[in-house]
């Protein structure tokens, strides 16, 4: 099943730029806020994290992400577009595993809605991780 909110492997700079250009046809969007979450090389019990393997409940992730988008659009009237992309599979330390992009007429709603979307993703998106050392 194809999931529009999940992508296999890291979120690449190319994907980020492609998604960013999606908003270019909306001349009323004066603000774009982007959050990129990356894998950290944390040290856990003396071992260094080299990558994280993400797994997801794909079908539910689709549904939850759609709900998040609808909730954010309802809560922030100036928001025009909300994009959520999360990695599945292996993402190495330093690579991106989460992208949130919000376009709005003005900066206030784009920045606040981006943060709000991030918190909802952390709470609701059915994704799990396994550290690789």
């Amino acid at each position: 099943m194809k999931n529009r909110y999940l992508v296999g492997g890291p979120i690449t700079p190319l994907l980020i730029s492609e998604l960013w250009t999606l908003g270019n046809d909306d001349a009323g969007a004066g603000a774009v806020s982007i959050f990129i979450g990356k894998v950290r090389d944390d040290e856990v019990n003396g071992r260094r994290v080299t990558a994280i393997e993400y797994s997801a409940y794909n079908e539910m992730a689709d549904k939850e992400a759609e709900e998040i988008v609808k909730t954010v659009q309802a809560a922030f009237s100036d928001v025009r577009k909300v994009i959520i992309v999360h990695s599945t599979g292996i993402v190495r330390a330093g690579e991106a595993s989460l992208l949130i992009m919000v376009t709005a007429g003005h900066r206030d709603h784009s920045t606040r809605a981006c943060r709000h979307t991030l918190e909802m993703v952390k709470e609701q998106l059915p994704v799990w991780k396994k550290e690789i050392y």
């Binding site: 979450g37 993400y54 997801a56 409940y57 539910m60 999360h86 595993s97 989460l98 991030l118 993703v121 952390k122 709470e123 609701q124 998106l125 059915p126 994704v127 799990w128 991780k129």
Partner: peptide, 10 residues
């Protein structure tokens, strides 16, 4: 039925 441990996305 899905058994969902604490979510870890992000």
């Amino acid at each position: 039925i899905a058994i969902l441990p604490p979510l870890q996305g992000g």
